[in-house]
């Protein structure tokens, strides 16, 4: 499985980008030559040299160090939001799908209401209501995004529930929890992982966007979106201030998207839930011939 992922050039590129960005940002305390926070007005807007690898910003802070620390915050918060979303979304979807009836109706109507608003706008409203700050942005994003996961998981559970292996598990004496845990979850997770990976790029972008709008990270905390915001006035004179965090965001999003696409091919739910069949009746021109083509 991992072999197939590594053989695909694009997803390999994505994986390398992600690993690099993670490594570099997590190692920020070691790699960064300066503290990203203290203001040193005498050093403002310096160009790159030995002391400041990428120069300094209008407040005299090392741009390189701020980029590294900023990436840390962006990634940390994106991952936390994702974790919250998954923790809410997957169980909700599992419950709604498995129990059906009233529970399903209620949860899905809530989901419908949330889905009725554009994501970012709703997040803006929620942050506006809670007040600016990274934690609030996190909550806002979680509130608006869990719904997609709940919906997708519910849909998958509804179809899996009809599958005969679930009936067979009941006949094998497995209780509802065992069925959910051993039979539904393992079949639901791979597509969700793909979705989550593709979604992470979007979350990075959302956090950056909200910070850019001044709702997320508050100065002097370095965060890529906030850094772009701070650089607005110097767009023409010192374009690097804006280009560097912008590129960092773009690269991260690209990395996650490439990786997600690769994962989708590898974890292809069709490939797992519908293994090749060799029953006689369905020999439309001999399915075995074609399965061979794919399984190189």
């Amino acid at each position: 499985m991992t072999g197939r992922l590594l053989r695909d050039h694009l997803s390999l590129t994505g994986l390398v980008i992600i690993i690099l960005i993670f490594a570099v940002t997590m190692a920020a305390p070691v790699l960064a030559p300066h503290d990203p926070l203290p203001v040193e007005l005498s050093e403002r807007l310096r160009s790159a040299d030995d002391q400041y690898p990428l120069g300094t910003d209008p407040l005299g802070r090392c741009l390189y160090s701020r980029l590294l620390y900023g990436g840390r915050i962006t990634l940390q918060y994106s991952l936390s939001v994702l974790a919250i979303i998954l923790l809410i979304g997957i169980p909700t979807g599992l419950l709604a799908g498995y129990l059906g009836g009233m529970v399903d109706g209620l949860l899905m109507r809530v989901a419908d209401v949330v889905l009725a608003f554009p994501n970012l706008i709703l997040a803006l409203v929620v942050t506006g209501f809670l007040g600016p700050g990274l934690i609030n942005v996190m909550i806002a994003l979680a509130v608006v995004s869990w719904v997609q996961y709940a919906r997708v998981v519910r849909g998958m559970v509804l179809s899996l529930k009809q599958k005969e292996f679930v009936l067979a598990a009941r006949s094998a004496g497995t209780g509802p929890l065992g069925i959910i845990w051993h039979h539904l979850v393992p079949n639901v997770l791979p597509p969700v992982v793909v979705m989550a990976t593709l979604n992470l790029g979007g979350l990075v972008l959302s956090i950056a966007t909200l910070s850019f709008l001044g709702l997320g990270a508050q100065p002097p905390v370095p965060e890529w979106g906030a850094m772009i915001n701070e650089a607005r006035n110097y767009m023409v004179s010192t374009p690097m201030l804006m280009l560097l965090p912008g590129t960092a965001i773009a690269l991260t999003v690209l990395g996650f998207n490439l990786l997600g696409d690769g994962l989708r091919d590898v974890l292809d739910p069709q490939g797992f839930t519908r293994p090749r069949q060799q029953s006689a009746g369905s020999s439309k021109p001999s399915p075995r011939l074609f399965s061979r083509r794919g399984s190189q």
């Binding site: 292996f165 009936l167 067979a168 006949s171 051993h182 393992p186 797992f272 839930t273």
Partner: peptide, 14 residues
């Protein structure tokens, strides 16, 4: 019980 579609009655991930 043994179901008609054996492939569908076996959890693909076990």
């Amino acid at each position: 019980i043994i179901f008609q579609d054996a492939a569908a009655s076996l959890n693909p991930r076990h």
